[in-house]
Design a protein around this nucleic acid. Structure first.
Lengths: 120, 120
DNA sequence: AACATATTTGGCTATATTGCCAAATAACCA
DNA sequence: TGGTTATTTGGCAATATAGCCAAATATGTT
């Protein structure tokens, strides 16, 4: 690994770290549906205004969102449009794993589904 | 946000946290090209064997990799095939941002390129 | 069995990340 | 101007994460 490779990896890590928090991931998923103002997150997530504000700053510093102030409110929206599809892919994988685990614990729950799949 | 939504978000966060470290991201990118054994990472990254081993455990617990032991070596490979394309998208975005920043600092460096783009 | 190699685990300290509170800004309203 | 709302910033304590060392395990070799 040379200097430049390491630098690029670290830059990507900043983005991933920004995504790697429940509240911030929630915010990103909300923004995938369109811009929102800070207060909307404060309502949805049960957290202090300052906490949300700091999370948004992390996202902004990582280049994931951009903001603009209109009146007394600040609106945030996504930059980096590839995020939603990626997060979706993770969601699918996670759900598949959860299903596997459930199947190991109680296979009977999945009998009907297995039969359906066999008929395809 | 209800209980189930929160649960799903947290599960995704586990995956993202696993990716959000330079060494682990490096490992994932290496594994995108095929399976590797632990010792190969120890050589490439300048870190203790135990450190690499722990990073691999984090990746495994998050469901990103699977391993199997052959002889005295343990080989790891990717599960979740959507990862490489996503990481690539982040890389592209990060590089674009870096280019923008460089352009603000020294616009002259990009004159030739701008001219080329204008002729397209 | 004794030894070497590859890897994991336990434990501990150093560092980074959270989240809350209080205070500062900024825009709007009376 | 004084007050209200929306948001950011500074500071701090609690928690989580990282990386090193030493010890444990597992496999293969002599």
């Amino acid at each position: 690994m040379n200097q430049q490779q390491r630098h690029l990896i670290e830059a990507k890590t900043v983005v991933l770290k920004a995504l790697a928090h429940p509240t911030r991931l929630y915010i990103i998923e909300e923004l995938a549906q369109g811009e929102k103002c800070v207060c909307e997150f404060v309502d949805a997530v049960k957290a202090d205004f300052s906490t949300i504000s700091k999370h948004l700053l992390v996202l902004k510093n990582a280049g994931l969102v951009e903001d603009d102030k209109r009146g007394q409110q600040v609106f945030y929206r996504l930059r980096m449009r590839c995020l939603p599809s990626f997060i979706n892919c993770i969601g699918v994988a996670v759900a598949a794993d959860a299903r596997m685990k459930a199947m190991q614990i109680n296979p009977d729950l999945f009998e009907a589904q297995k039969a359906a799949e066999a008929n395809e």
